[in-house]
């Protein structure tokens, strides 16, 4: 893998590992490698549903967190997920650490969905979607609720 930067080498490695041994409920879109498919875990509110996540990496990855949003037709209805796909999750911004990976972000999002008690949009959804930046990392998130 000569010629790749350390950041590209790491991404290459992460992709290989995701394709070869994806965590349960996750699969990589073979055509567009930057998208992951997420399947609602059994026994939760989202059982049987499928969601698509998009990861965008800057060249400062892994020092800089990836930009992660839900894309496609089906955006999960969840108190931390806005209808434009933006996710309010601290590890995607303030609590990001280079020791995290695409895999661990997927697992965090799965667990966030799985622990949901009631399907509903965030209370400020309408306002946020109208006013927010396209890049969710530009939003100053206010992490108020740790329970879900």
């Amino acid at each position: 893998m000569a010629g790749l930067s350390p950041s590209e080498r790491r991404l290459q490695k992460e992709l290989m590992s995701l394709v070869k041994e994806p965590p349960p409920g996750v699969s990589v879109d073979p055509d567009i490698a930057e998208r992951n498919l997420l399947q609602g875990a059994a026994g939760t509110l989202y059982e049987g549903e499928r969601f698509q996540l998009q990861f965008k990496f800057s060249n400062k990855y892994p020092f800089d967190s990836p930009e992660v949003t839900f894309v496609g037709q089906n955006i999960p209805i969840h108190p931390h997920v806005y209808s434009n796909g933006h996710i309010c999750l601290s590890i995607l911004t303030d609590d990001w650490s280079p020791a995290l990976s695409v895999q661990s972000v997927c697992l965090s999002i799965m667990s966030m969905l799985s622990s949901c008690k009631e399907k509903q949009r965030p209370p400020d959804n309408a306002f946020y979607v109208k006013t927010c930046n396209k890049n969710p990392k530009k939003t100053k998130w206010w992490y108020h609720d740790d329970s879900v």
Partner: peptide, 15 residues
């Protein structure tokens, strides 16, 4: 072989 980060690998660049 297939583990993302082997013991002794750097936890940041994964190599």
């Amino acid at each position: 072989e297939d583990v993302l980060v082997k013991s002794g690998d750097c936890c940041i660049c994964f190599s």
